[in-house]
Design a protein around this nucleic acid. Structure first.
Length: 446
RNA sequence: GGAAGGUUGGCCGAGUGGUUGAUGGCGCCAGUCUUGAAAACUGGAGACGCGCAAGCGUUCGGGGGUUCGAAUCCCUCACCUUCCGCCA
């Protein structure tokens, strides 16, 4: 495989804690163009509290100005004290006056901190504003189909992946629930090998397409979850484990560790676009989806995914979304699975996204297309939260870069799609040609 | 889990209470010289926030404290290194 194209940043910097860096939305844009932003957010179903915003914003600014004026005064007097002392003169009158300033300053600093925190937590809950090219709509019914690819297989009375997998002896849901409960699965024999083949196939394809492979932690801290937008709003969707006095979160997608790789860093413009792919397990509590997809392994607490993540310049980002989506589609096409590409409407997008394409694969048992990849352009939304910057020129000002990511693909759902689309009348499953080298030449699972 | 030592600007590395954003070196940018480059010499440059601006503030791992004043003193947390124990 030719992986030379895959770029990698090797520079390391000393780690730094930035619990709640900078703004989420562009404060400048909010200030100058509040109406437009509020209107766009309303289209994705978010009622922006304009009054609350203005109150918090001006309170913050006012207290900052007061506090800094006082600090400037204190600094001036301190310098005077220093000069007097050096000249061996008496400074006690100044020192006495400074004592009182110190008390005032403590009060102001506390107020400043409070105002800043209130403002930040308000902003942290505001989702990204949809891009101009995103259709307006309430829910998935307003999504726009962009294209269809492939031929839907003609299957008489198709079985679903549960029946197929169970009777082939490659899927064992009963024992999985004994081990862990609902929404877990056990793959066996050719089923386990098929999963592994898909992982290897996807990774090799994507690294050949220019995505530098990374293996990351599956447990991350709160700062990372904040950086990509899972926190503070969606804590209930995450699994977590205690760790010392704090806790670590199980990643719901490789997007989290990979996007946060360069958190609090300023990248050289020449390093962009920077493309990564990563295989990880993904853990989701699926709180609030109790009725949905209860049969089979469509919706699991734990599943595998190969993820594509890109860091790029604002100018190149829109084209990058098309490229990235195409790289995900290439996997479906190589596997010869029929799919369609859908442009999500304002109301159906994720919290951090400003534009998202979903790829949906055909599932014969449901006679419908089901999501198998979600490719998103986040603008500078995540970059602001994670403090991801780049320098266009050697001496240029650091500016926020753009992040994108997409599944390339969700492995479990690909497994399902293969079983269902490649099923034969006798219950066996033909192995897609491109996967056979990864399965020791196996042509049919029977 | 136990013990000791560390964490300073893009990097290395000085600095134990008073003009320290912080000596010095490397790297970087511009200029001089050169046909060009290198070398040499000269000059320049951190990041973030507030402000129309002048400018001001913050920043020496994070947080807290002492002090008129903290990179420098105290507490605490995180991380790194080494040794011991345990372990894939």
């Amino acid at each position: 495989m030719n992986c030379e194209k895959a770029k990698f940043i090797v520079r390391m910097r000393s780690p730094r804690q930035t619990p709640y860096p900078g703004g989420m939305l562009d404060l400048q844009r909010l200030r100058n163009d509040l109406d437009a932003v509020v209107a766009r957010l309303a289209e994705r179903g978010y009622a922006f509290d304009r009054e609350g915003y203005q109150r918090l914003e001006s309170a913050r600014r006012q207290v900052i100005q007061e506090s800094e004026a006082l600090k400037a005064e204190r600094n001036r007097v301190s310098d005077e004290v220093a000069q007097l002392k050096r000249a061996k003169q008496d400074a006690s009158h100044l020192i006495e006056a400074q004592r009182k300033v110190g008390e005032q300053m403590k009060a102001l600093e506390a107020a400043e901190k409070e105002a800043e925190a209130a403002f930040q937590s308000f902003l942290a809950a505001v989702p990204n504003a949809p891009h101009a090219s995103v259709p307006n709509g309430r829910d998935e019914h307003a999504n726009v189909e962009i294209k269809r690819w492939g031929t839907i297989p003609a299957i008489e009375q198709p079985k679903d992946h549960v029946d197929l997998g169970t009777s082939l002896g490659i899927l064992d849901l009963d024992r999985a629930s004994k081990l862990s409960g609902a929404r877990f699965s056990v793959l066996k024999g050719a089923g386990a090998k098929l999963e592994r083949a898909l992982i290897n196939f996807m990774l090799e394809r994507q690294s050949a397409a220019g995505y530098a492979e990374v293996i990351t932690p599956y447990l991350v801290n709160a700062e990372s979850m904040y950086g990509t937008g899972q926190l503070p709003k969606f804590e209930q969707d995450l699994f977590h484990v205690p760790h010392g006095d704090s806790k670590l979160y199980l990643i719901p997608t490789a997007e989290v560790p990979v996007t946060n790789l360069y958190r609090d860093e300023i990248l050289e413009g020449a390093a962009l676009p920077l493309r990564h792919c990563a295989f990880t397990p993904c853990f989701r509590s699926e709180a609030g989806s109790y009725g949905r997809d209860t049969r089979g392994i469509i919706r699991q607490h734990q599943f595998h995914k190969v993820e594509l993540v890109t860091f790029t310049t604002p100018e190149a980002a829109e084209a990058e979304l098309e490229r990235l989506t195409g790289d995900a589609e290439a996997i479906l096409e190589a596997l010869e699975l029929p799919y369609r590409r859908v442009l999500l409407c304002t109301g159906d997008m994720g919290f951090s996204s400003q534009k998202t394409y979903d790829l949906e694969v055909w599932l014969p048992s449901q006679a419908t297309y089901r999501e198998i990849s979600s490719c998103s352009w986040f603008g500078d939304f995540q970059a602001r939260r994670a403090n991801l910057k780049f320098r266009a020129e050697a001496k240029g000002k650091p500016q926020f870069l753009h992040t994108l990511n997409g599944s390339g693909l969700a492995v479990g759902r690909t497994w399902v799609a293969i079983l269902e689309n490649y099923q034969q009348a006798d219950g066996s499953v033909v192995v897609p040609k491109v996967l056979r080298p990864y399965l020791g030449g196996l042509e049919v699972i029977r």
